[in-house]
Simulated scan of single mutants.
Amino acid sequence: MLRAATRGSALARWQTAHIAELLGRAADVEPLLVATSGDRLADEPISAIGGKGVFVKEVQAAVLDGRADIAVHSAKDLPAATPEGLVIAAVPLRADPRDALVGCRLADLPEGALVATGSARRRVQLRGLRPDLRFAELRGNIGTRLAKAADFDAVVIAQAALERLGEHPPVVDVLSCETMVPQVGQGALAVECREDDHQVRALLAAIEDPTTRRAVDAERAFLAALGGDCTLPAGAHAHVEGDTLAMRAVLADGIDGRCHTVVGEGEDGEALGQELAGKLLQAVAR
């Protein structure tokens, strides 16, 4: 029996069940539901309650103290630094990394339309495309956000989340990674275990997708170079072309500031992530 620490949302439980299926142990993985500070403070902006780590710290703690054997995360929720004693033992095949507008297509949004999202990254990029847009804060699980979609002209949701939960809203406009650069790790899952638990590490190695891991590690190197738990509006998306990594990254100098974008290629993902982060920090400083 593997005990898997996870958040209690429908999406988090789907992700844990998916990992169990990949392992071929669907009947042998017991979820341990953990309430995180991000879940308890669902009405507060993420930047106000601690940044990226608010959805993972309590889940990681359950593995470190022995209540669970593994922790299943959305990779986009992880800060760049892994806590001492843990290791990201598997990054399976990535789902769709793109963002989607639900309720109205981008080209059809009326002048001054109200778009709901809790992500500063999404806001600055949409504002760059449509300076006339207005924004409202929106957090909560996927069901909550979809239920509130009618209160706005559009809401922004990760396409992978819609697909994983089998949600098919009447109007969905999936935005390319060139139009809106995704969050670091978006669409990917990350499974952590204790660093010294070699038996579990061996089990998880079987579900690793090397291409996805290479891309996600490059994106996480970008995040680390920005400061590890960056609250600035930033995103990065990497993909493998042959033996080469190609990455597009974005950073804005504040929630209402100018959005800067860079692209690059290289074989060393860590070096590429650091290089693009350095270029964007220089652009923001200027």
Rank of each mutant, 00 (worst) to 15 (best):
L78T: 08
L86H: 14
R94W: 01
I49P: 02
K76Y: 09
A80Q: 09
K76H: 12
L78C: 14
A35N: 06
L23E: 05
I49L: 12
D69E: 12
D69V: 07
H18V: 00
R67V: 01
R40Y: 03
A62W: 08
A26T: 12
D43Y: 01
V63R: 15
R13M: 06
P79T: 06
A71P: 07
A81V: 14
D39E: 15
I70M: 14
A75F: 06
E44G: 04
V87I: 13
D77C: 10
V87W: 05
D28P: 00
A71Y: 02
S74V: 08
A90C: 11
V87T: 10
A61E: 12
L32D: 04
D43F: 02
Q60I: 02
V63Q: 14
L22C: 04
R25P: 01
I19F: 01
D65Y: 06
S9R: 11
A62K: 14
G50P: 02
T82W: 00
E58Y: 03
L11V: 04
I19T: 15
A20Y: 04
E58N: 03
I19Y: 03
V29Y: 11
D65W: 07
G51A: 04
R40F: 02
K52N: 02
G85P: 07
E30Q: 15
I49G: 09
V91K: 05
A27Q: 11
L11P: 05
V72R: 10
K52T: 00
A89Q: 10
S74A: 15
G38A: 07
S74I: 05
D43C: 02
H18S: 12
